[in-house]
Design a protein around this nucleic acid. Sequence first.
DNA 1: ATGAAAGCGCTAACAA
DNA 2: TTGTTAGCGCTTTCAT
Lengths: 343, 343
Amino acid sequence: MKKETTIYDIARELNISPATVSRAMNGHPAINIKTKERVDKLARELGYQSNRFASNLRKQRSHTLGVIVPRLNSVVMSSILSGMERVANEGGYNLIISQSLELEKKEIENARTMFNSRVDALLISLAFDTDTFDHIAPFIKKKIPVVFFDRVLDHPSCTSVVIDNFRDGYEATRHLIGQGCRNLLHVTGSLKRNVYRDRLRGFETALREFGLPYTDDSLLVTGFDAEAPNAVMDRIAAMETPPDGIFFTNDACAASTIILMKKAGYRVPHDIAVVGFNDDPISKVVEPNLTTVHYPAMEMGEIAVQTIISHLEGNLNVNQGSAIVLRSEMVVRESSLRPDKTI
Amino acid sequence: MKKETTIYDIARELNISPATVSRAMNGHPAINIKTKERVDKLARELGYQSNRFASNLRKQRSHTLGVIVPRLNSVVMSSILSGMERVANEGGYNLIISQSLELEKKEIENARTMFNSRVDALLISLAFDTDTFDHIAPFIKKKIPVVFFDRVLDHPSCTSVVIDNFRDGYEATRHLIGQGCRNLLHVTGSLKRNVYRDRLRGFETALREFGLPYTDDSLLVTGFDAEAPNAVMDRIAAMETPPDGIFFTNDACAASTIILMKKAGYRVPHDIAVVGFNDDPISKVVEPNLTTVHYPAMEMGEIAVQTIISHLEGNLNVNQGSAIVLRSEMVVRESSLRPDKTI
DNA sequence: ATGAAAGCGCTAACAA
DNA sequence: TTGTTAGCGCTTTCAT
C-alpha cells in the first residue's frame, strides 16, 4: 500500500506550511483566496484525503452520533432512523447505529461501545426491560449530550423527543367507548416503558371517566412477537364475555389478530372493534382497515438529530431536561366504526 | 471538562512505561500476568477509556464498516441491516450507515464520506439510478474490501451477496402460468438494477418457454412509491384485455394494488392472480394472502458482514469477485391459486 | 518482560 | 496572511 498524501506533502510541494494548508482546507477566514485555490487544486490532483482520526484526536470531537434502538427492523424504528440519517448527513455527522434487541444487557454493552467510540452525542430508545440508568450516567458525567426518543426516561439532564402517549391512549379508548364498546381489552408492551405505561394510563383514565370496569381481564402485556396474536386469542377465549373492543399499541399485532379473530368467527368491528397504534402501512391493507394513531416517526428522527446538532454547535440550546412533544393523531378507519352501536 | 485518563496516567501511577500499559491492555503475550492485573485494576479504578482515535491513527484501521443502502426504512433493508448490526457488533466492529434515498448523487456523496471516515470495508446496495462505478473505484484502488449485497454490480474485485433473482422471477412466472394465466403483467423497479433486471429475464424466459406473448403491455416499471398502485390500475385499465395475472417484485405494492383491484371489481385470484416478492409481513394480512418469494434478508446481512470480517481478519478469504447466492423460496398463498383454471 | 523514543496527521495558540 | 511549535494518545520498533 503506497503512502497516503498528507497536508505535509501538499505544503512541501507548494512551499507553504502545513498549518496554512490545514487552514485552506477548512475554510479558515484569514486565508488568501489565491493560496486556497492552489491548495485545493493540488489536493485534488494528489487525491488527498483528510485523515479524520488525526483531526478527531486533535479536536477531541468525532462528528459522529451514536444511536441505540431496540430493533432496527420495525416500521417505526427504521423510519425514525431514516429521518435521523438524513438530517445527520446534511449536518456533516456520521451515525453509528446499534440495536439492543430489547435486552438491557446488550443495551449496556452498546452504550459502552458508543462511549469508547467517543460519539459526540447519544440518541437512545430504551429496550423493553431496561431498569438502570448506569450505562447512561457516564455520558452525563462527561457532558456528552444524551437525547432520548420514543422510549424515554425522565432525567433532568436529558432532552427527550416523544409523542403524547397518555393523550393518544386516552383518545383511542374514548373513541372505542364512543363506538359503544363497554368491555375493553388493552394489548400492549412492557410497562417499564413510558410509551406503554402512558397509553395504559390513558386507557384507564378513559374507562374510569365512563364508569367502565378495569379488571385483570382488561390488560394483556406481550412482547409483540410472532406469538402475541395467539396470546390475544387465548385471552379472548378465556374471558367471561369476549371483549367488544380491543386497543392494541401495535398495528402489526392488531392486524394479525384481526385475521385470527375473523377466522374464529368474530366480526370486526361489529363484535369486536379494534384500534391499533403507529399507522403502519399494514393498517391500510388489513380488512377492515385499521383505526390507529399516526406516529410521526421520520419527523421524530429528524427533530432528535436537529436538536442534538444545534446543541453541539452551540446554537439554540433546547434546555437540558426538556421534552419535545410531537403531534400525533388518530386516524379513524373501519376497524372501529360501529354506527349502529353508537349511543 | 476534567482531563481524560490516559495510559500515561496509569503508567506514572504504577511506575512503569506507557508501552507496558498499552501492551497489558491489549493482551500482548510477553507481559507479566502480575503487571497486567495491576494495570487492569487501576484502569478500572480510574475509569480509563481507550482513545480510539489515537489508536486508529496509529494503527491505520478504524474497526468500522461503512454501509450504504437505498433506504433504511424498508422491510427488507431494515432486516438486512439488523442482521449486519448483530454480526458486526459481535465481531467488535461499528457500523456507519447511510442511505442514498435511491439517488446516485447522494450515493456518491455517501461513498466519499465513508472513504474519508476510513471505514475498513464498504457494504453497499445500489440506488435505482446509479450508473457509474467511479465512487467505488477509490476503495478498490486502496484495497479496501467492498461487498455488494442485494442490488449488486458485477466487478472482478468485489464479492457480492445475492439471491437467484433470475430463478425466482422464472419460478414466480411459471407458477402463474401453471395457474392458467395467459396474459401476464410484470410490475417492477428500475431495470438498471440486477434484482429487477434478472427477475424480468426470468419472467420473459418463462413466457417464451410457454409460447406466451411479451409485449409493451407486459411490463410496468415503477419507483414503488405511494403512486405505484394507481399506476398499475391505470395500466390495467389501458390494456386491451386486462391481465389475468400480475407478478410484482414488491409485496407492499402488490398488497396495496390488490386492495384497489378488489375495489374496482376484480376478483383476486379468480380474475387476476397475484404474486409478490419479499415475504413482507403484509403478505400474510392482505386478503387473499399473498403468494410471494421469501427473501432471506436478515441472513443476507449476517453473511455479508461475516464475509467482510473474515476477509479483514485474514481468515477464510472468499475469493474476490465471487458471489454468494442465498437460498430464497416461493411461498404459495391464496392470491395466486386458481384450481378451477389450472390446466 | 520492560523501557525509550519516534511518529501516525492534524490543529491551534502564539508569534511574526 | 502565514509560519512555528507543540501536542492530541496510542502503538511499535529497537534496545536492554
